[in-house]
Design a protein around this nucleic acid. Structure first.
Lengths: 356, 356
DNA sequence: CGTGCGTATGACAACGTTGTCCAGGCTCTA
DNA sequence: TAGAGCCTGGACAACGTTGTCATACGCACG
């Protein structure tokens, strides 16, 4: 059945919204032009605020637009103009409180540049990250902000070569040379652990994510560095890696808190781990010091307040997005790695002296 | 200067990325066809997995696609096909922890239907909401999930008429008839306040947002209803409306906790207010009961644990998105209002007996 | 009064894809 | 072996917009 016939026929078909292939007979510039009795291009001029239209003509066109409920089809516009004024954000999990502010910051920068934000969660799955990133490229986003889930981003090479501005955040890109914005994970962790050492701790536990994740590896490295700087040999039983789900974190924490020589302090490698460890410690009578990487909400209201190494998620997002738009300006020379400082926030749990 | 000339010229121009109007010479199906020595449509068939291509031809095409780094231009596809396989989400603030899970839930449903999610924050500004929603319509999203900031949505009428599926979440649409998915704000608040009354409280304070916001009004109504059911006359000094920024919440709370007849319990109208009130109460020696609307993270770890009326943000998002895709299926009859139940989570703060 | 110029307007092609339709070559059967 | 029918592949138009270019008109000036 030809398209045109379908348009006119069967207006009462109840599944019209879907089966009507086109956008339910949306008016086009041609329709507006016909109604206003002007040429197609004149409508285009009015819609885009281009000069060279008499006030009288403009008024007629505006009336027609109003009457028909016309709205410019940006798909066609994009096809013609080449740029979409939209950027993509691939993150790990929108529901994670860390990414809310980050995402919001990216959005604000995009908005300031007149661009929309399209985003999706990779759920920490490299394949899904790739699928998502390429889908965004197919939509011809002008740029891409990616929080890597995988560690090989060569699949983006053709896209970058084709002009898609790309910035990686939170974790570095894998096997390609690209802009990266990250927190000083190493320095932050080192400072946090040094803080515990400064308060007299020597047996300090570390619970973090798999070292295959860059941030986790860096934080572990910071832990080791601080211990080494203090001349404290690290025992294997103090470290628990690749552990994030609450049950395993709980077991790991309990393990290092038991035995003849339990740890007197714990450094946690991310917010989810921190929360679980707080629960474990709350059930114990003997006080254990705690410093966590990433801030958590209400950390100051707990007893004791939770000392953390805080990252500025919003600053990460903002910096990345700004860098992306500067790529689009063409005002950047080459890929760069930007590291943002972390901040140690002391609230009590990190200042507890060693017990036992 | 003609487009084609520009393409080829000045490859070394350092602002190439921007000034090159087109997508940096991206290969098209035509290019792939030429390289593979086949017709344009054959490439289209291969890309879309349509039948009618010999394995040998398909292989040649695939090789050409690989070699050129071709990626289908979805803008053109959308223009031709009419549907974009993307939906828009207009929410209040991505950084608000309430909207993270909601947004994520919408995304999951979209993904299950093969659609992408484009979103933006209205920052509680009706004009910005409208601007955003219409921008999404210009992109020809198939559907729109809106968390209203304003109370007049007639501007969406032409869009809805043109076939844009639309669902409002968390707050009802203003002045148009549309699908709405919300929490039982009235019932939840009433139950929460009744809970306090059941524990012996009579002088119960209420701190909430401006009643012009639907959810705030409903929660206030729930508060009043519970009090009335218990035969307790409400004094004006117990209620503080339109107060959300921390400083003013603090003053409001302190005011109702002072004087000759202070309240012995407080019901807070949303999570931000709850958090501030927790801080105020933490500084006081005399225990004051507290029930908050919206759950907050780590609420169970505080002393006492915070009793809340919890909404299921993810369920709101999921329900709305599913309803949206059912609109697109054409399997729905008319607009409907769906109310999801809330859940009272007792953790201690709401079970404190009246003091003084 | 004619020429020249500037401004308002419209005709037309192109953007990259997909749907329609037709041609040519093949197989299968009578 | 010829004709019918099927399968593969390609030519072409269309989607709605914008950039380019040509035209027509009005006005000032010589």
């Amino acid at each position: 059945m030809p398209e045109t016939a379908r348009r006119a026929d069967r207006p009462a078909d109840r599944s019209d919204r879907l089966s009507g292939t086109r956008y339910g007979n949306r008016p086009t510039m041609k329709d507006v032009a016909a109604r206003a009795g002007v040429g197609l291009k004149t409508v285009s001029r009015v819609v885009n605020g281009e000069p060279g239209v008499t006030p009288d003509t403009e008024r007629r066109v505006q009336e027609a637009i109003e009457a028909l409920g016309f709205r410019r089809n940006d798909s066609a516009r994009v096809l013609r103009k080449g740029r979409t004024a939209s950027i993509g954000l691939v993150l790990e999990d929108l529901a994670d409180p860390f990414y809310g502010p980050l995402s919001r910051a990216v959005e604000e920068v995009a908005r300031a540049h007149g661009a929309l934000l399209i985003n999706g969660s990779s759920a920490e799955d490299p394949d899904r990250e790739q699928e998502l990133a390429l889908a965004l490229c197919a939509r011809r986003v002008d740029g891409l902000v990616v929080i890597p889930a995988g560690d090989d981003h060569r699949y983006l090479e053709p896209e970058i070569k084709a002009g898609v501005a790309t910035v990686f955040v939170d974790r570095p890109a894998g096997r390609i040379d690209a802009d990266v914005v990250l927190s000083d994970n190493f320095g932050g962790a080192r400072d946090g652990v040094a803080h515990l050492i400064a308060h007299g701790h020597r047996r300090i536990g570390f619970i973090g994510d798999m070292p295959r994740i860059h941030t986790a590896a860096e934080r572990l490295r910071g832990y080791r560095a601080a211990m080494e700087d203090a001349g404290i040999p690290v025992e294997d039983s103090w470290m628990s890696l690749g552990v994030t789900d609450p049950e395993r974190v709980r077991r790991a924490a309990e393990a290092m808190l038991s035995g003849p020589e339990p740890v007197t302090a714990i450094f946690t490698g991310n917010n989810r781990v921190t929360v679980t460890v707080i629960r474990v410690l709350a059930e114990r009578s003997r006080p254990v010091a705690l410093v966590g990487f990433d801030d958590i909400e209400l950390a100051d209201l707990l007893q004791p307040g939770v000392t953390v190494v805080a990252q500025d998620a919003a600053a990460l997002g903002r910096t990345a997005a700004e860098r992306l738009f500067r790529q689009l300006d063409g005002s950047l020379v080459g890929p760069e790695r930007i590291e943002l400082p972390t901040r140690l926030v002391t609230r009590g749990s990190g200042e507890l002296p060693p017990a036992g």
